[in-house]
Structures are given as structure tokens and as C-alpha cells.
Design a binder for these strands. Structure first.
Length: 270
DNA sequence: CAAGAGGCCTGAGGGC
DNA sequence: TGCCCTCAGGCCTCTT
């Protein structure tokens, strides 16, 4: 499930294939993904040149002079750059035909992903309420401390709120809280400034490192070498419920928190 | 405003 | 071997 490192890895894989190329045509095999695909994708995008491939939160933005195509990978979305002759497979919903002769193909079995449009100079509604980027300087312990006062929701839920900070999903929330030694069940408003400093540092370290590993869950990758993500080999908590804590050896606890599967160490995380 | 629940969607995996 | 059920979960939207 793509979180920030996977989306960033995708962006880095796509950029050399897309930047400076022109979009020759768009093929939509369904009229909608999570939301209806806006008409501009077919009426405005063809003929545009892609000036840059950017990432904001878990969205990818393909910038053109007319505006930006917004892509979200949802749970199961993937983007690949392929020879135009590559046969269509199941769940291949969208093609962008490139002036290089290749196509960027959007595959998404569960269709939680989206393809949207943002006119030049405007910010799409869905991007407006997003919190800061976790790797930006403005995201730190003091910020988390200030935002969390009087919040009674579990700190894990708070950390996964995209209005608080973007890009941290279930995997990296579990790993960051483990690293910082904070119980995911603790009320967000009851975590000290010092411990939030440790948490912010853990989020930054883990996300940055996961990016260097190519993310956690990308398998069908778009780069020419087809490299998958390797970070899953280094997960301490996520998906390891019942197994020994890497630090103290006691069995890791497992429960749903905020309707999300959660794993933590009842001894090391308080 | 905050918090919790519902819903979207399909493949994987377990049980029988 | 094959069917059925449950689960996975980002994140928007609705309800309380």
C-alpha cells in the first residue's frame, strides 16, 4: 500500500521518462476510478508537455502549462512506463501516450486510486486541507505538540491524520511509534513535547531511509531496472503481531486502533 | 470541531 | 481441488 516513500519512489522512477515529453493521447478504459475522471484529462491534457513530475503528500502531479494531472495510487495503484505495444492487462485503467513512443499505464485492481485535474494556478480541493510534508523543516516535535493539545484520539490515529502531517500511513505510523517508544493507544494530547520531538525525528528518519530502500511494498515498479522495495525486510512492528519484540523479545501486541490493524510492544512502548 | 463509523473495491489467504 | 468467508486499508463522507 503506497505511502509517502512508495509514492516518492514512483515519482523518481517516472520523472526521467515523463519530463520534457509531450502527451500524444489519453486512453481511458473506465470513466472513473475512485471518482469520475474529469473531462479535462481527455480534452486538455493531450498535446501538453509534461514540465515536471512532483509529489504532494501521496499525490503525484504531472505539471503542464495548462494545469496538472493529479494521480493518487490508493491502496493498490501502480504506474509503469512501457512500450506502446505492451498488451493490456486486467485493471489497466488509463494510458498516457508519450511522445517518446512509450505509454505511462495506470493499473489499480481495487480502484481506490484517482486521476484528477487541477487547472494552472489553482489548488485542487483535495490538496487544500493537507498538513505539512513530514520531511520539511516545519514538521517537528513542537508542531506535533501544539497540534495535539486536547486531542483525545490515539496518537497513532493522530499521526495518520493527513491534515496533521501527510504521507504517514499504517506501516510508517507503526514503525515510527515503535522507534520513539510511544504506545499507539496513548491519547495524542497526553504525549509530552519531548516525546513528540522523538516521534518527529523517528518519522523523518524512517521515511527518508525507506525512500533509499525503494519503499516497502512496490513490486511492479516503473524504473527500467524494475527494482522492488526492500524496506519490508526491516520492519520492526508492522505485520509482526505475536512475534518477539526486536528490542526486548516479548510478544508484540496486536489490536485494531481507529479501525486499523496495529502492532506494538507493550513493554517498550508507553 | 473532534471522533468514530461506514463505504468503496478486489485479490489473497485460511478453513473446510 | 474448489468454494466461501474474512481481511486488507487510504481516505472521503456522514453521523454523533
Amino acid at each position: 500500500m503506497p505511502e509517502l516513500p512508495e509514492v516518492e519512489t514512483t515519482r523518481r522512477g517516472l520523472a526521467p521518462h515523463l519530463e520534457g515529453k509531450r502527451i500524444r493521447g489519453v486512453v481511458l478504459r473506465r470513466p472513473d476510478l475512485r471518482w469520475p475522471i474529469p473531462k479535462e484529462i481527455e480534452s486538455v491534457l493531450p498535446g501538453q508537455r509534461i514540465d515536471a513530475v512532483r509529489r504532494r503528500a501521496k499525490y503525484l502531479l504531472l505539471d503542464t502549462a495548462a494545469g496538472s494531472a493529479l494521480l493518487h495510487l490508493g491502496m493498490t495503484g501502480s504506474l509503469r512506463v512501457l512500450p506502446a505495444s505492451t498488451p493490456i492487462g486486467a485493471h489497466d485503467h488509463v494510458d498516457l501516450q508519450l511522445s517518446s513512443g512509450r505509454v505511462m499505464r495506470f493499473n489499480d485492481p481495487r480502484r481506490f486510486g484517482s486521476l484528477l485535474w487541477q487547472p494552472a494556478g489553482e489548488t485542487h480541493e483535495l490538496l487544500r486541507a493537507l498538513g505539512p510534508e513530514p520531511l520539511a523543516d516545519e514538521f517537528d516535535g513542537d508542531y506535533l505538540f501544539a497540534r495535539s493539545r486536547n486531542r483525545k484520539a490515539p496518537v497513532k490515529t493522530f499521526l495518520m491524520d493527513q491534515g496533521v502531517v501527510v504521507g504517514v500511513g499504517n506501516i510508517y505510523a507503526a514503525e515510527s511509534l515503535f522507534r520513539a517508544g510511544i504506545s499507539p493507544l496513548r491519547a495524542a494530547g497526553k504525549v509530552s513535547r519531548e516525546r513528540y520531538a522523538a516521534l518527529a525525528a523517528a518519522v523523518k528518519d524512517i521515511l527518508a531511509y525507506a525512500i533509499t530502500r525503494g519503499g516497502t511494498t512496490l513490486r511492479d515498479f516503473i524504473s527500467p531496472d524494475g527494482a522492488p522495495g526492500y524496506f519490508e525486510q526491516e520492519l520492526s512492528a508492522y505485520g509482526r503481531g505475536g512475534q518477539p519484540c526486536p528490542t526486548c523479545g516479548r510478544p508484540l501486541k496486536f489490536a485494531n486502533i481507529g479501525q486499523r490493524a496495529s502492532v506494538w510492544c507493550g513493554h517498550c512502548q508507553r
